[in-house]
Simulated assay, not measured.
Amino acid sequence: MAIPELSKMLEMSYMGVKQHCVKLEELGYLKVWRVPRVQVGRPQKLYKLTAKCDPLFPDGGGALVLDLLEGVKNSFGDSAPEKLLFHYFEKERDHWLSVVSAGQSLVEKATRFADARIKAGHFCHCQYSPEEGFVIEEYHHPLQRIFQAYPGLITLETRMIEQTLGSKVDRVEKKGSQGVKCTVYRISTLG
């Protein structure tokens, strides 16, 4: 997140939050980088928790879900986990559709989508480059561990994003604009 969003969420002054972020970066708990803005303006400075924070925020959900999916697989067959999660992605699509429906253009819908995903625990942003066109770069996905165990779910999620935005979406994993590995969703702006 950027300092203005952090200060609003924490109900602190901009400078107070900035001082904490600088100190946490020095201690190795935060990583900072600049993200180009879609519109005009200086790049935005974003802060992200580093792996040093992992022990402070244990993740019990991923292991639980993987254990449950393994049980479903053992009881009902190899395709059962993906069939079960198909329903999840349908519900996600309906939720995201309500979020993006106010957008007038594809760019506005995608921006609303990315903003809502940030609130849901993803770390992503929209950007345009002449080489790739309009993309959403995602640096953290809460279901990453689940996707590693069940890669077929990646296709389900990609189709859900296409249905939400009403546009073809190609998903690739590569180095993003910040020089680190990320998932890039290329959004077709052609009808």
Rank of each mutant, 00 (worst) to 15 (best):
K119S: 06
D115S: 14
L97A: 13
H95I: 06
G152F: 15
H125M: 12
E131G: 10
A120P: 03
W96M: 14
C124A: 15
A114H: 07
Q148L: 12
T111V: 06
P130C: 05
H140P: 01
R112D: 07
A149I: 03
F147A: 08
S101E: 10
E92C: 05
R93Y: 06
Q104K: 14
P130R: 12
S129E: 15
Y128E: 09
F134N: 03
A116D: 08
F147Y: 15
L106G: 09
Q104N: 14
L106D: 09
E137P: 13
E138W: 10
A116G: 04
H95P: 00
Y88A: 12
A110V: 04
A120K: 10
A110P: 08
Q127N: 06
H125W: 14
F89H: 05
I146D: 03
Y150F: 13
D115W: 01
S98K: 08
S105C: 07
S129M: 14
E138F: 10
Q144C: 04
V100W: 03
E131T: 15
T111M: 05
A120C: 06
L106C: 08
D94Q: 04
D94W: 03
E108A: 13
S129D: 15
F113K: 01
R93L: 05
H140S: 09
P142N: 07
L106Q: 09
E132F: 14
I146N: 04
Q148C: 06
D115R: 10
L85K: 08
C126L: 11
H122A: 02
R145T: 15
K109E: 09
E90C: 14
C126R: 07
S98I: 00
L143N: 00
Q144T: 04
A149R: 13
D94F: 01
F123C: 11
F147I: 01
V100E: 01
V100R: 03
W96N: 08
S98L: 02
E92H: 02
G152M: 11
R117S: 11
G103C: 02
Q127H: 13
V99Q: 00
E108V: 07
T111W: 01
Y128H: 13
I136K: 08
Y150V: 02
E108W: 01
V107P: 06
L106Y: 12
I146P: 05
E131A: 15
L106F: 08
P142C: 05
K119I: 04
G103K: 01
C126I: 10
P130H: 11
E90N: 10
R112L: 15
V107E: 10
F113R: 01
A102Q: 10
A110Q: 08
G133I: 02
E131Q: 15
H140N: 12
G152K: 13
Y150Q: 05
E137A: 14
E90K: 13
E92Y: 04
F113C: 00
L85N: 05
L106S: 09
A114V: 07
G133A: 06
V99A: 00
K109D: 06
